[in-house]
Design a protein around this nucleic acid. Structure first.
Lengths: 143, 143
DNA sequence: TGGGGCACTTACAAAAAGGTGCATACTTGT
DNA sequence: ACAAGTATGCACCTTTTTGTAAGTGCCCCA
């Protein structure tokens, strides 16, 4: 929870290059920091991703689509996303419970901002795969 | 570390929209997943960010620039970034140690892919701030 | 009546991530 | 001689995050 908010000192040596970020913000180092903290959570990107693809999803659909996620986790992340205003939960209050989830406009905009990351990952799949092969390969000691 | 690789079932109801991601990959659900796992780590985005801004930085410079990061953490993350091929470490093998870090081409491309996230965070700063105010505000029980 | 699905909730445990502080080997400044 | 700076390494501990298993209330179906 410590975010390096105090004394936002920037390096005064190298030229600050282009205005990629604006490091003069409330509790965050920069917008990137803020964004990453919002999508932090093992399943959140996936959720956003799925919701961005299809229309609203029912809870069970998501659950099955994401596969490997437990109820606890899915619900927890959905709740955070909801309270963060990225996802809208619609409870139809029917007798066998029926609920669905969709992106809010804010959520949509975030999902769009994620696209380049997505492409990067896809483009550099081979490098990335090697990296993780390495990390897991001789595991048991390294990390 | 489980990535929902097995049985990549996709929802067959809603139309798959545009080709935002390509969910047919080795160990990851999609490129986004891969990317996020590479930049996972409290300080990595910041490091990439700083390196993307100025030229190569010496260790101590980074340490002071990022502020609040401990040696252990900074070194650890730098090492991972290095072994992931995003950062290049140059050891001048001088008597008082001198080392500097810079982005590799791969690192640069990633940094560029991060720009939209950065902008998103900056643009939606107000919403994001509110979110975190809420999260921390009535803490102690919520999470 | 037993089984299954729906959308969750809760208590508890395991694992991962992060943090603190001390140590190293060598040099320069005072 | 001693403190300070350089770039790290290592041991230990706390916090955060994730996972597991079980349970809830209600309904439908055979």
């Amino acid at each position: 929870m410590t975010t390096s908010s105090s004394t936002p000192s920037q390096p005064q040596q190298n030229p600050p290059a282009e205005g990629t970020c604006t490091p003069t913000l409330p509790g965050f180092t920069c917008g990137l920091d803020a964004t990453l903290r919002i999508i932090a959570g093992k399943w959140k990107p996936l959720i956003l991703y799925f919701l961005a693809q299809g229309g609203p999803y029912r809870y069970g659909e998501l659950r099955r689509a994401i596969r490997d996620v437990s109820d606890k986790m899915l619900i927890q992340q959905l709740k955070e996303l909801e309270s963060d205003g990225l996802v809208k939960r619609t409870d139809y209050k029917e007798i066998p419970p029926r609920v669905d989830y969709s992106l809010t406009p804010l959520g949509h905009s975030l999902a769009e901002a994620l696209v380049p990351l997505c492409s990067w990952g896809t483009e550099h799949m081979d490098e990335v795969s090697r990296v993780f092969a390495k990390r897991e390969g001789w595991g048991a000691k390294g990390r």
